[in-house]
Design a protein around this nucleic acid. Structure first.
Lengths: 209, 209
DNA sequence: ATACATTACGGAACACTGTTCCGTTTGTCA
DNA sequence: TGACAAACGGAACAGTGTTCCGTAATGTAT
C-alpha cells in the first residue's frame, strides 16, 4: 500500500492544492446553480459564483457536458446499480422495470433542462449523451430481456429506444404544471405489455358504412 | 363586392410590390432550408440565400417562430382538419385517434428540429408552441372524449398532455437511425387502452421471498 | 415625366452565448 | 529563498438572435 491514490489509474501528478480546491468549489457551485437555474446556466455565471475565471472552469472540465456529468455521476451510478437489485427483488421483471424507470424519471425530471441536452446530435453534448446511454442502456436491457423471457412484454422494443423515449418524455417537465412526465412514462411502459393491440388498425376492419 | 381583399380583416395597406416579393421569397427559401438544415438554420443564412438583409426578414417575421409558423401553417391546418374526418370515418374512436396521431407524427418527425422547439419556456418560441397547441389540442380532445365515451381508453389523460408527449417523442427523430419515433408513439397510444395494468405495481403484491 | 412622401431595405451594431489563448500569479520543492 | 512548473484570470474570438437607422426603392400626385 505505497499508493494512496487510485490503485490502477495512471494519475501521475497529484495536482496542486488550489487546483483541487477550485475543482471542488466548481462542482458545488454548479450543482447549486443547476438546481436553481437549470443545467443551461451560463458558464460565466458558474465561474463568477465560484470566484474563478472562465479559463479555470474549462481547464477542469473541458466542456460543459463534462461538468454536468461530473455533477450527476453519483446519482446516475446509483440509478444504474439499483437495476439488478430491483430485478432480483421482483417476481415480475415487468414490474421491476416499471419501478426502475420511475427512479430514472425522478432523477431526470427534477434536473431542469438535463433531459433537453440528453439527445445526440449536438457535438458539445455528445459526451453527456454517450455517458448516460452507455451506463443505463445495459441495465435497461436486462429488464427487457427478462420481461420478454417471461412473456410479459412485446419483444420488438430496444433498450436504447426505450431509454431515449423516456428521456424525451422528461423534457420540459417542471416548466409546465399541466405536463406530468411520470404519467406519460407510465403510459409508455403500459404500452409495452404483450397482447396489446397496436394503436394503428387496418382501416378495412374498422371503417363504418 | 367592392373589396377584393380579405372581407373582414382590417388590412389597410395593400403593401408594396417588392415587400410582397421578398416575403414570398423568404417563405420559399426558409421552407427549403428547413428541409436541408433543420428549423434551427441561422437567420443570416436564410436572409443571405434569399438575397435580402437581416432587417428585412425581421420586418416580415418579427421572430423566428413566426417564420416557422408561416412555413408550416398549411400542413398544420391540414392535419387539424383531418381530425373530424377520421373521427367520423371510424367505428372506433381509439382507432381513429391512432390514425390521426400518425399523421401528426409524420408531420413532426420529418421536420428536423421542429419538435425540439415545440416546448414552452423559451419566450422566443412561445408563439410557435401556442399556435400548435391551440390548433391541435381541441382536435385531440374530440378523439379522447369519444374514446372515453366508448370505454376504449382510460379517462385520466388530458389532450394537452398527450400532444406534448407525442411531440416530445418526436424530438431527435431523423438524427438517429436507432430511434423510431413512430414506434414509441404507437407504444404510448397502446398504453392508453382501458383495463391496462399500470406500469407501477405495489411491491407488496409482487415481491419475491 | 417629375417630385416627393412613405414604405421597405441592408447590414452594421448590440447583447448574449460557449470556448480558446496567453500574460500573470501562485504553489511546491530544493 | 529562489526557481519553475502548474494553475489562474479575463480579454478575445466565433457564432447566435435581434435591433437600429441611414439609404434606396416605390407608388402617387402633380
Amino acid at each position: 500500500m505505497t499508493d494512496l491514490n487510485a490503485p490502477s489509474a495512471p494519475r501521475i501528478p497529484p495536482k496542486r492544492a488550489d487546483a483541487q480546491r477550485n475543482k471542488q468549489m466548481l462542482l458545488d457551485v454548479a450543482a447549486a446553480l443547476f438546481v436553481t437555474s437549470g443545467v443551461e446556466v451560463p458558464v460565466r455565471e458558474i465561474a463568477a459564483r465560484a470566484g474563478v475565471g472562465t479559463g479555470t472552469i474549462y481547464r477542469h472540465f473541458p466542456t460543459r457536458a463534462e461538468l454536468i456529468i461530473a455533477v450527476y455521476r453519483h446519482q446516475v451510478e446509483t440509478c444504474a446499480e439499483a437495476g439488478p437489485v430491483l430485478l432480483a427483488r421482483y417476481v415480475s421483471p415487468y414490474a421491476a422495470l416499471g419501478e426502475w424507470i420511475q427512479l430514472f424519471v425522478d432523477f431526470l425530471a427534477t434536473k431542469h433542462g438535463l433531459a433537453d441536452v440528453m439527445q445526440p446530435g449536438d457535438p458539445s453534448f455528445d459526451a453527456l449523451h454517450r455517458y448516460l446511454i452507455d451506463r443505463l442502456v445495459p441495465v435497461c436491457m436486462a429488464f427487457l430481456d427478462a420481461a420478454v423471457e417471461a412473456d410479459e412484454i412485446r419483444p420488438d422494443i430496444q433498450a436504447y429506444e426505450l431509454m431515449r423515449g423516456v428521456g424525451n418524455l422528461c423534457i420540459g417537465a417542471g416548466n409546465d404544471a399541466h405536463y406530468d412526465a411520470r404519467r406519460l412514462v407510465a403510459l409508455l411502459i403500459a404500452g409495452l405489455r404483450r397482447a396489446q393491440a397496436d394503436a394503428r388498425v387496418d382501416p378495412g376492419d374498422e371503417l363504418s358504412g
